[in-house]
Amino acid sequence: MGLLSNLLFFPVTGPVAGIKWSLGKVQKVVEEELTDDTAIKQDLMELQMQLELGDIDDDEYARRESEIMGRLRDVRAWRERLGKATSGGPVRVARDTDEE
């Protein structure tokens, strides 16, 4: 059995498993990209810096800020959809549920 049965009875196992694996990996990468806001926050800080240094004016700042806010909202929406923790929004002190 084992390898032989794979070869004899399930000739497509190899490629299928391969595809599954890479799809799973792609999905993970996509998920991370959709839900990671580190780069967006970095962009926001850079934008802030540019305004403080006088490299851009208030109008330019406002325009690019609203674009960044849009990206932040997208990430938040994806995080919620994928059941990940989000920052912002109402919170409360975590009640200890396992009080044995």
Binding site: A85, T86, G89, P90, V91, R92, V93, A94, R95
Partner: peptide, 8 residues
């Protein structure tokens, strides 16, 4: 580190 959770 506050132990905060989402309040819905």
């Amino acid at each position: 580190k506050l132990k905060l959770e989402k309040a819905d």
